[in-house]
Computed example of a mutant assay.
Amino acid sequence: MRKEKRLILLVDDDLAVRESLKFALELDDLSVSLCGTGEELLLHDDLGAACCLVLDYQMPGMDGLDVLDALRAKGLALPIILITGHATESLRRRARKAGVMQLLEKPLVDSALLDSIRHAIRLGRYPGAARSH
């Protein structure tokens, strides 16, 4: 019997980052769907089916925490891994307060992202947020 692949949504405005992360995650038998902006993510057909969201913080338009606020307002609960090129202490505090499961700094080192995604999958839905119906 074939195991169903877990869907990971990945949002980053840099096409090269999106494509390289998708390639690496698919090598680990994950299904990855890409978005270039937060606005694109909010319209994504499979938003409710994802088991984890990898979200860039710095993007044109909505930043990663704005996107997270919009997801929570929609009642969507899923583990969020926020990635950023510059993780200040202020951003770390804001991310924790917003319910971000993990904040990773680019360039992503070794298996940090994959390890965080595996942890998110083991946890299931984010326990502190409202569930979608």
Rank of each mutant, 00 (worst) to 15 (best):
Ala87Leu: 09
Asp28Cys: 09
Leu104Ile: 10
Phe23Leu: 15
Asp12Cys: 08
Glu26Pro: 06
Pro107Ala: 02
His133Cys: 12
Ser20Leu: 10
Asp12Ala: 06
Thr84Asn: 04
Leu71Arg: 00
Val109Phe: 06
Thr37Lys: 06
Glu26His: 11
Gly75Ile: 07
Ile121Arg: 05
Gly64Tyr: 02
Lys106Asn: 07
Ser31Gly: 10
Val54Trp: 02
Gly128Tyr: 12
Ala16Thr: 14
Leu103Phe: 06
Arg72Tyr: 07
Lys5Leu: 15
Leu55Lys: 02
Ile117Val: 15
Ile81Val: 02
Thr84Cys: 09
Arg93Thr: 15
Arg125Trp: 01
Asp46Lys: 10
Gly36Arg: 04
Arg131His: 13
Val67Ser: 02
Asp66Ala: 15
Ala24Pro: 05
Ile117Lys: 00
Tyr57Gly: 00
Asp29Phe: 13
Met62Leu: 15
Val11Gln: 00
His44Asn: 13
Gln102Tyr: 09
Leu91Cys: 06
Leu68Gln: 11
Tyr126Lys: 06
Val11Phe: 01
Ala95Thr: 00
Leu27Tyr: 07
Leu114Thr: 13
Asp56Arg: 00
Arg6Glu: 14
Ala98Tyr: 02
Lys22Ile: 05
Val67Cys: 11
Glu4Tyr: 07
Ala120Lys: 04
Leu71Asn: 01
Ala98Asn: 02
Ala70Arg: 14
Gln58Val: 07
Gly61Glu: 08
Leu91Asn: 03
Asp110Glu: 13
Arg93Ile: 14
Leu123Pro: 03
Glu19Phe: 10
His133Ile: 10
Val17Trp: 05
His119Trp: 11
Ile8Val: 15
Ile117Cys: 04
Gly128Ser: 13
Lys106Glu: 10
Asp13Phe: 05
Arg92Leu: 15
Leu15Val: 15
Lys74Arg: 15
Asp12Val: 06
Arg131Thr: 12
Gln58Ile: 09
Asp28Phe: 13
Ile117Gln: 01
Glu89Thr: 10
Leu25Gly: 03
Ser116Thr: 07
Glu4Ala: 12
Gly75Lys: 03
Asp29Arg: 11
Gly75Thr: 07
Ser132Val: 07
Ile117Trp: 01
Leu21Asp: 02
Arg125Glu: 10
Ser90Trp: 09
His86Cys: 11
Ala87Gly: 11
Asp56Pro: 01
His86Pro: 04
Leu42Lys: 04
Phe23Val: 12
Leu25Tyr: 05
Ala112Glu: 10
Ser116Arg: 07
Gly64Arg: 05
Glu19His: 07
Ile8Arg: 00
Gly99Phe: 08
Ser116Gln: 08
Gly128Asp: 13
Pro107Gln: 04
Leu91His: 03
Met1Trp: 08
Tyr57Thr: 01
Leu108Asp: 03
Gly75Tyr: 04
Tyr126Gly: 06
Ser33Pro: 06
Asp28Thr: 08
Arg125Ala: 15
Ile121His: 04
Glu19Asn: 13
Ile80Gln: 02
Leu47Gly: 01
Gly128Val: 06
His86Gln: 13
Gly85Thr: 05
Arg94Asn: 14
Lys74Ala: 12
Leu41Tyr: 00
His133Trp: 13
Leu103His: 01
Met101Glu: 10
His133Arg: 15
Gly85Asp: 08
Leu25Trp: 05
Leu43Pro: 04
Leu103Met: 12
Ile117Arg: 00
Pro79Cys: 09
Leu41Cys: 09
His133Ser: 14
Asp13Leu: 05
Ile81Lys: 00
Gly48Leu: 04
Ser31Gln: 14
Arg6Ala: 14
Ile117Asp: 01
Glu105Met: 08
Leu9Cys: 08
Asp14Trp: 10
Arg72Ser: 08
Leu78Pro: 03
